[in-house]
Amino acid sequence: MANIIEIAGLELVFPAADGPVHALSDINLNVEQGEFISLIGPSGCGKTTLMRAVADLEKPTSGSVQVRGMSASEARQQRSYGYVFQAPALYPWRTVEKNISLPLEIMGFSPAQRQERAKQYLALVNLEGFEKKYPWQLSGGMQQRVSIARALSFEPDLLLMDEPFGALDEITRDYLNEQLLRLWEQTQKTVMFVTHSISEAVFLSTKIVVMSPRPGRIIDVIDCDLPKDRTLDIRESPEFLHIAQQVRQGLKSGHSYDG
């Protein structure tokens, strides 16, 4: 299968008043079409920075980032990916429908198309009938679902998700994890997902990238071959626990794990 993301020899250094911060060091990573890849690691390991580099929101100091065969900057200009932030980042002066339409407006879709897409993707995140609500009328989980619908609305192949459920309670998070998995199955997107929850990473991913801080680097890539139609119950299964154990080991050791 074709690589949708190719990262080679990526270095990223932030200049700071008290000496430069080495955020990412020697990152090499390929992501294939249709994969669900999670970046996991403690705070400050550069997982968000790595994803922002893929999204062309940060400029690498050296090395290359290719998205769909283009440079990260070209890929951004081609609107190749949908980005879901840590917070919903909905515009409070826009209704749910208008928030989802925002990228479509910018990309020149017709009003009829925008309305149809908003309806379609609201249904996909189980929020039918919320078109005319304002963000403040929705719970945190609902707001984040709207932001996912917004990222999907212009139908990019690639979805970049930066701890989208980090601020939500565990019950909501479980529910949204299951929904996200269904959504990934239905839409056949490639997903890059940042998290610091091991069970979330194992439950969702086909591949887990374990990272370590100072300098931010990849210490392990663990394949995760649980069946695609998994439910939350799978978290009790031996296979799940085994992979989770591998990830935990990887995070603890900070060196390569050969399993």
Partner: peptide
């Protein structure tokens, strides 16, 4: 974040 969102839409 709101600015970054606009940037992702180019």
């Amino acid at each position: 974040m709101s600015r970054d969102l606009m940037r992702t839409y180019n």
